[in-house]
Design a protein around this nucleic acid. Structure first.
Lengths: 341, 341
DNA sequence: AAGAAGGAAAGAATCGTTTAGGTTCTTTCC
DNA sequence: GGAAAGAACCTAAACGATTCTTTCCTTCTT
């Protein structure tokens, strides 16, 4: 079997409890003993058993990452690897390990996360999404498990620590930018309606139109389901309206690429015939042709802050709830131009 | 405190061991008792403690994912989320959880993984890379920890279970495709030289040239460091040779996008002035303009098979070593054309 | 020189399971 | 009718730490 704390204790002629204290570098142990014990550990090639430690100390030093329905699908979207990068960075700094949800359907994930937490596998979780009426979020709150959400919680946002962008402001600025270029017929291409990002950005979009005295037209709003390429109905209809839009606000880069492709097929040139601003500013925005004007939401930082705050919350469960807003920045590239009348 | 197996036992008027057996659905317990115990579990809202279970049973039902130096950097590359998707799928099917390395430097990762395994946090690991003379791989093998590598191990490949593509064949086919289009001056743009993928694909490239009776020129081979945009020296030099290549074999999509960008800056049109075939066929290949001809290596499946085989290996440590080759497929798009003389 | 004070380490309980090895009670069979 | 067999549970010892409590030495004080 493996080398345990007892073996080390025997070798160093001390009690197991002493070895444990040496590992924790307790001031109650003399330097001399510490040296002796450390030497024994080296000689035996001792490695602490995390599992046993977790059981005794009731903490696992692991944080859970919960992706929206289907880890499987989510990872196809560049947003997720990027948030995870941020989370990973913070976790690493604080010596926490990372565990990922693997569930595919919403209910599966719900069960999975509960097992993770109740089973003490993780000390807390980060939800990488925020959706209307989320069952899991309610459960976490009721059972007082440490968690933070990336995005704005649907209900009781003031009671839930979350890291978000000012999506309202983001939607507004992007739209204002297009208005500034003379566009008056601006459409909004959103993703899944039940996610709060979409809703907030739409709100900002509306506000920008209103302030500029432009009409808000329902037929200028469409929702394309995330990653479903077959679903181009809406876009085609939009572009063949009597008065088609001269500019598009597209809810994220990945979708913007889809849109770009479709426009190409329809022989519409960007930005000559139609302008396009998107969000997230992932690598895709830079790589696409033409490079996209996109609002950078600092995805990495979203993840970083989320993890940092979760870890703080785990350490001090009774600290006040926090709301962290990550700044954003419009990055101008080549997908927007002045309107051609 | 939480509901434990003892509480359930008391409630159901049985011994803790009986409850444990009910959880495991042991045939040694009568249906009647099982029903009684299950009811008690429901009533009390019992959830098993994984940590305690792991300690007692000496298995964690978790598999570790090890990314190459810097989880941080790796996740910027679309290959990784995609393998992880595959791993996640298989893990989910077998009820394994997933833990990720967060280390940044090679030594850190080395330590981290050892702690993971020795600390019994994971039952085995998947290495998402294969590099020349990898310290970690040696350690794993010597200590007989269950692991599988994605890619071809540098040494003793026949003793290590691994999942790979036929990178030699892939390099060869891609090159042959270009030769078939009449190209005679074909350059190879590789990534990090210490990764074995690069080496193998290069070998295939050479072989294809040779079979076609074309000369292999050293100045047609360059290595651009992964994700380092500043590093364009090599490419620029290559393109300003007396006899510049008419086609490029680029080692992956992400790099191909960089190359594409550079070509654009230099006013070279793809595929009119220069053809380009790349590898991996990630979303990027499809999304880029022009869409890239790329060899699909079925990344998802690489991950899926790796996880599946690791789990088998954990269950039966003495099964023979396996080598799994995932098939590939050249996907023709619009980045290649007949050579113009 | 006796007793107090305090530092260093040992002892032992605990965390929540699993599992080998008993024990008890019923059934079966000659 | 009594031994043997078998079903159905129970007891108790791990698993490898942490941590509260106790004990054992020193050293200092008066």
């Amino acid at each position: 079997m493996n080398v345990t704390i007892k073996d080390v204790a025997k070798r160093a002629n001390v009690a197991p409890s002493t070895v444990s204290r040496v590992i924790a570098d307790s001031p109650r142990i003399s330097e001399k003993t510490k040296r002796k014990v450390r030497e024994a550990m080296k000689e035996l090639g001792y490695h602490p058993n995390f599992i046993a430690r977790s059981l005794a100390s009731q903490t696992s030093q692991v944080i859970g990452i919960v992706m929206p329905s289907s880890a499987d699908q989510a990872l196809q979207h560049p947003f997720f690897p990027e948030v995870i990068r941020g989370i990973s960075k913070a976790a690493h700094e604080k010596k926490y390990a990372l565990q990922m949800s693997t569930g595919e359907k919403e209910d599966e994930i719900y069960e999975e996360v509960i097992e993770m937490l109740q089973g003490r596998r993780v000390d807390g979780v980060i939800l990488l999404y925020s959706r209307v009426n989320d069952k899991l979020m309610k459960y976490l709150q009721q059972n007082n498990f440490p968690f933070v959400v990336i995005g704005k919680p649907h209900q009781r946002a003031e009671q839930i620590t979350h890291v978000d962008n000012d999506n309202y402001g983001i939607g507004k600025e992007a739209t204002q930018y297009l208005i500034g270029l003379g566009h008056e017929r601006i459409a909004f291409v959103g993703g899944n309606e039940t996610y709060l990002v979409t809703a907030d950005r739409l709100l900002g979009y509306k506000e920008a139109l209103q302030e500029a005295g432009l009409v808000y037209r329902k037929d200028y709003i469409i929702y394309e389901e995330f990653l479903q390429k077959a679903n181009q109905e809406g876009m085609r209809k939009l572009l063949s309206l009597g008065e088609p839009p001269t500019a598009l606000v597209v809810v994220d880069d990945l979708m913007a690429l889809d849109v770009l492709k479709l426009l190409d097929e329809m022989n519409l040139r960007v930005p000559d015939d139609i302008s396009l601003v998107s969000f997230n500013n992932t690598l895709l925005a830079e790589m696409s042709r033409p490079p996209l004007t996109s609002v950078d939401i600092h995805i990495f930082q979203l993840g970083y802050e989320a993890a940092k705050n979760l870890i703080e919350k785990i350490a001090k469960p009774n600290e006040p709830v926090k709301r962290i807003i990550i700044p954003h920045k419009l990055v101008k590239r080549f997908s927007c131009d002045y309107v051609r009348k």
